[in-house]
Amino acid sequence: MKRLITLLLLSLSISFAQLRVATTYPWIGELVKDVGGDKISLYVIAKPTEDFHFVVPKPSHIAKLRNVDLLIINGASLEIGFLPPLIQQSNNPKIQPGRKGLLDLSSFVDLIEKPAVVSREMGDVHPEGNPHYHLNPHHIPLLAKAIKERMCELDQTNCGYYTSRLEDFLKRWSQKLKEWDEGFSNLKDLKVVQYHKTYNYLFKHYGIQIVGTLEPLPGIPPTARHLEELSKVAKGAKFVVYEVFRDSKPANNLAKVIGARAIVLPHDVGVEGVKNLFDLFDVILERLSQ
C-alpha cells in the first residue's frame, strides 16, 4: 500500500514537474526539445509552411497558451501581427509581457540592419532590426543557453538535467559549426538574390553577396517593374532563393532572365528534408553548394 501511494505521488509529481512550454516557431521548439528532453511538454504555434509574419491567430492556439508556464518567442516584432491578441485572450497571467513566463530571444543577439528612422513608407521594416537572426548558426548556442537559464529559473528541480543536456547539445553544435564555417566559407562572394531579407544574417556572416531581393520593399510582393530593374543589377547571381511558403513564379521568372537557378532554401525546422536544427544548416549549405 505504501509503495502504491509513493508510486502514485511520484507519477503525480512527474506529471506536475513537466514544464509546459510553448514557442512561436518550430526552430525555437527544437531548442526547447534539445534542452528540455522529456521533462517538458511542447506546443509550437506556427507551422513551417506558414509565412512567419502572418501566422493565423486561430482560437485553438489560445486554448493551448492558457496552460503553459513558459512562452518563448522570436521577438523583434516578427510576431506583432498575431501574437498579442493570442496572449491577451489566453487568460494566462504567467505569459503576459513583463512576467518570467515570456522569453523574447531577440534580446540575446545583436540585431543587424537596425534602421535609424522608421516609417511605413519603407515597407514592413522592424524598428528593432532584421528579426531573422536564427539563421546564423553562431547565434544558436547563445539562444540555447538563454532558454536553459529561463527553464532552470522556472523549474529548479530539473536544472541539472537541462544543464547536462545543454552541454551535450553545445558540444555537438560546436563540432558542426566547424563543418559549416568551412563549408560556407567556400561560398564566399557567391552572388544570390533572395525573396525577402530572410537570410541576411547567414549571408552576411559568411560573405555571401546579396545582390537584391525580389520584394521591392520588405513585405511588398514583387512587381514586374522591380523584377525588370533587378534583372539588370542581378546579373552574375548564381541562385534566386526563396522560402517554401512563397510564390515560386517571380523567383523562376527572374532566374530565367538572369541565367540563375531558383531554389527553395529551408528557413525553419519541419520543411522538407529538415527534421532538426542541424539539418537546417546542412540543407542550406548543401543547396547553395550545388
Partner: peptide, 12 residues
C-alpha cells in the same frame, strides 16, 4: 467576466 476552460480545445 469570461472564463477560458482548461480543455485541449478552445472553450470560452
Amino acid at each position: 467576466i469570461n472564463w477560458l476552460a482548461p480543455t485541449p480545445f478552445y472553450l470560452l
